[in-house]
Design a binder for these strands. Structure first.
Length: 547
RNA sequence: GGUCCGUUGGUGAAGGGGCUUAACACGCUGCCCUCUCAAGGCAGUAUUCACGGGUUCGAAACCCGUACGGACUACCA
C-alpha cells in the first residue's frame, strides 16, 4: 500500500535512498575538525547578520582544520532576486570570508544550490512515504486558514496535527481520485510526536534547552515539489556531512521539527550552535536587525562608508567572542587568525550592533597600520568611490605618506582617522591645490582671531628647515620672547599683563596660517613636510585673504 | 495567546554560589604631560547586578513568582 502510494506520487523517482547516500561518503577529516556551512538565500543583498554568521562558520571550521562550505538556499522561488547570488559572492570576497567548497567553487558534495537538488529531496520524501512516515495532503489554502483561525480563537497550537490532519489516512483510492482531478498537494510527515513530552537541545552556545516535542505534520515538500527549509536542512546537512549547524537563534523553536526529521530518516543529527541575533536600537527599543527595514545594514553600506574589511572583521570577532577585544588590545601584533574562538564565549542574549564601537575599532585598526599601507588602502577606496581625489592622491603621494607618518610611532599612534573617507578632509591642507583653491574655505574662522601678520612674515623668514625638533622649538621660544611673548605658558599665566601672549599663541598663529585650522598634528612636522618656501607662500596667501 | 531566550553604571558588556570593595572597552569629569588636537599617564564615575519572595553560614550568580524586552508560532528562510 505505501509502496504503491509512493510510486503513484513519485513515478519519476527511480533512485533509492541508499543509492543517493552512497554518493555522499563520509569526509576524511581529523578528529575534532568541524564542518560548517553558510546557507544564505539569494533574496537580495547580504546583510550584516548574514556576514556575522558566515564569519563564525569560517572561523570555527578553519581553526579546527575543518571545512566550511557555501550552500545557496533558494527554495523560495517567490522571493528570489536577480543577481543576488553574485552580490553574496562579492560581499564574502570583499570581507575575506574564505570558504572551502560550495557555490562558486568546486566540491564533492554538490550541487550546492538547493534548487538543483530537487531530485535528491524527492528521493528521500518518496522513501518516507514508502515507509509510512509521510503522506500527501490535499488541503486547500482556505481550509488551512480556517483551521488556523479557529485554533487561534481557541488558543490551541496552530498547525496541522492530530484530528486536523484529515488527509493523514487517505485511502489509495482517495489519493488517486485527487490526482485524477489534478488537485494540488504537499507532502507532510506523520508526526509521531507527543505534546506532553519534552526534548533537550544541547546547544553549544546557550546550553541545554528544554523544548516540547513536535506534533505538527510539517510540510516537507511544497506543492511545486520543492522542499521546505526544514526538510532541505536535514537532507543537505546529513548528506554534506555537516558536523556543526551554526545559525541564528530564531531557529531554536523549530529544532524539535528538525530533530524529528533526522529521527524519521534514521540519521544522526549534527551539533547545533544558535547564536544571538544582531539587534539594533531604534527609538530606545531593541529589535532584531531586519533586511527589509534596515537597508543600512547591507554589507555594501560598510564598503561605501569606507570601513575597511579588516576592521569590520575585528568588530565581528568582538561580537563573536566576548573576550576577543581584550585579547586583541593586549596582543597588538596578532590577528584574528591567532585567536581561538569558542562557542562558550559567544553571547547568549541579543547582540547590539553599535556603530560607535565599530568606529572606535576602525580608529584603532588604522592607528596600527603603516603609513604606506594606509595610503594604499585609502587610494584603493577612492579609486572606486572618488576617482578625482584618487588622482590627486597619486600626485601628492610623498606628502600624504609623510603626513600619515606624523606621530605614527609604535607607542602612541594618532587615532584621528576612522574611515577611508577621512583622509581627504583630515589632510586637505597638505594638498596645495585644495589649500590655495578657496581662501574662504581654507580660513573659516580667520576674522575672529587677532593674528599678527607682520610677525608671521618675520617668522617665516627666520624658520630653518634643517632644525631638529628641539632646535626648532628652542627657536620658536626665543622668537616669542624677542617679540614680547612669553616663552613659557606658565610664565604668561603668572603675569599675563607683562606679555602680548605666550609661545602657544605664536604656534597657533603659525598653525592657522599654515593649515587654516587650530587643531592639527604636530606643527614642527607639518612645517618640515611643507618646507620653507611653501610656508612663505602660505603667509602671503594669508595676508592677501586678510586684506 | 503559546513556546523558548534575555534583563548587570551614561554605553557595549565580563562574571554563572565565597577569588568581586563587579573585569575590560567606549564615553564623561578632574589632574598631569603639553605649541593645539590626537595619543599617553593618574584619579573619579554601579556600596550593587529589573522587582518581590525563597534556598544558603554566604547570592549578581541557584529556585519560584511578577514586570519589561526579544525571537519563534507559513506550502519564508
Amino acid at each position: 500500500m505505501n509502496h504503491e502510494l509512493a510510486e503513484l506520487l513519485f513515478p519519476n523517482i527511480k533512485k533509492t535512498r541508499e543509492e543517493v547516500e552512497a554518493k555522499f561518503p563520509d569526509r576524511n577529516l581529523k578528529e575534532g575538525a568541524m564542518v560548517t556551512r553558510f546557507g544564505p538565500s539569494p533574496t537580495g543583498f547580504l546583510h550584516i547578520g548574514n556576514l556575522y554568521g558566515a564569519f563564525i562558520d569560517s572561523v570555527m571550521a578553519h581553526q579546527t582544520g575543518g571545512v566550511m562550505y557555501l550552500r545557496l538556499e533558494d527554495t523560495d522561488s517567490k522571493r528570489q532576486v536577480e543577481g543576488a547570488s553574485d552580490l553574496i559572492l562579492n560581499s564574502l570576497k570583499h570581507f575575506h570570508i574564505a570558504y572551502d567548497e560550495g557555490y562558486g567553487k568546486e566540491g564533492f558534495y554538490g550541487p550546492y544550490v538547493q534548487s538543483e537538488r530537487k531530485e535528491i529531496y524527492q528521493v528521500f520524501a518518496k522513501a518516507l512515504v514508502e515507509e509510512g512516515k509521510a503522506y500527501p495532503c490535499f488541503m486547500k489554502e482556505e481550509e488551512l486558514q480556517e483551521i488556523r483561525e479557529g485554533q487561534e480563537l481557541r488558543k490551541e497550537i496552530t498547525g496541522i496535527y492530530k484530528h486536523y490532519a484529515v488527509d493523514r489516512d487517505l485511502s489509495l483510492e482517495e489519493v488517486k481520485e485527487h490526482l485524477e482531478k489534478k488537485d494540488e498537494y504537499v507532502i507532510r510527515i506523520k508526526s509521531p510526536g507527543d505534546m506532553d513530552k519534552q526534548i533537550i537541545l544541547h546547544d553549544l552556545i546557550k546550553g541545554d534547552i528544554l523544548l516540547p516535542e513536535n506534533i505538527i505534520d510539517e510540510v516537507i515538500l511544497k506543492k511545486d515539489g520543492i522542499p521546505t527549509y526544514h526538510f532541505a536542512h536535514v537532507v543537505d546537512d546529513h548528506l554534506m556531512k555537516t558536523t556543526h549547524v551554526i545559525r541564528g537563534d530564531e531557529w531554536v523553536s523549530s529544532y524539535p521539527k528538525h530533530l524529528q526529521l533526522f529521527q524519521l530518516l534514521g540519521w544522526k543529527s549534527p551539533k547545533y550552535a544558535h547564536h544571538a541575533a544582531l539587534t539594533k536600537k531604534e527609538d530606545g527599543k531593541v529589535r532584531k536587525l531586519s533586511k527589509r527595514k534596515d537597508p543600512e545594514f547591507s554589507v555594501s553600506y560598510y564598503q561605501e562608508a569606507g570601513i575597511p574589511a579588516e576592521a569590520l572583521r575585528l568588530y565581528l570577532a568582538t561580537l563573536t567572542n566576548t573576550n576577543f577585544e581584550e585579547w586583541y588590545l593586549q596582543n597588538k601584533d596578532k590577528t584574528i587568525a591567532d585567536f581561538t574562538f569558542s562557542y562558550k564565549k559567544m553571547p547568549v542574549g541579543g547582540t547590539l550592533f553599535d556603530m560607535e564601537k565599530l568606529n572606535n575599532i576602525c580608529r584603532t585598526y588604522f592607528s596600527r597600520l603603516k603609513a604606506e599601507k594606509l595610503y594604499e588602502d585609502v587610494l584603493l577606496y577612492n579609486e572606486e568611490y572618488d576617482k578625482e581625489y584618487a588622482g590627486i592622491m597619486k600626485k601628492n603621494k610623498e606628502r600624504l605618506v609623510s603626513f600619515l607618518n606624523i606621530e605614527r610611532d609604535a607607542k602612541r599612534p594618532r587615532k584621528d582617522i576612522a574611515t577611508l573617507k577621512d583622509l581627504k578632509e583630515e589632510s586637505s591642507y597638505m594638498i596645495d591645490e585644495f589649500f590655495f583653491q578657496n581662501a574662504e574655505n581654507t580660513y573659516k574662522i580667520a576674522e575672529e582671531k587677532n593674528y599678527d601678520i607682520e610677525l608671521l612674515k618675520k617668522y617665516s623668514e627666520e624658520f630653518s628647515e634643517s632644525d631638529s625638533y628641539e632646535e626648532w622649538y628652542e627657536r620658536v621660544k626665543r622668537f616669542a620672547q624677542d617679540n614680547g611673548y612669553a616663552s613659557e605658558v606658565k610664565m604668561y599665566k603668572e603675569n599675563p599683563e607683562n606679555y602680548k601672549g605666550h609661545v602657544g599663541d605664536i604656534c597657533e598663529m603659525i598653525r592657522f596660517c599654515l593649515t587654516g585650522r587650530t587643531k592639527t598634528p604636530d606643527l614642527y612636522q607639518i612645517l618640515s613636510i611643507l618646507g620653507k618656501e611653501n610656508f612663505k607662500k602660505r603667509v602671503i596667501f594669508f595676508e592677501n585673504v586678510r586684506l
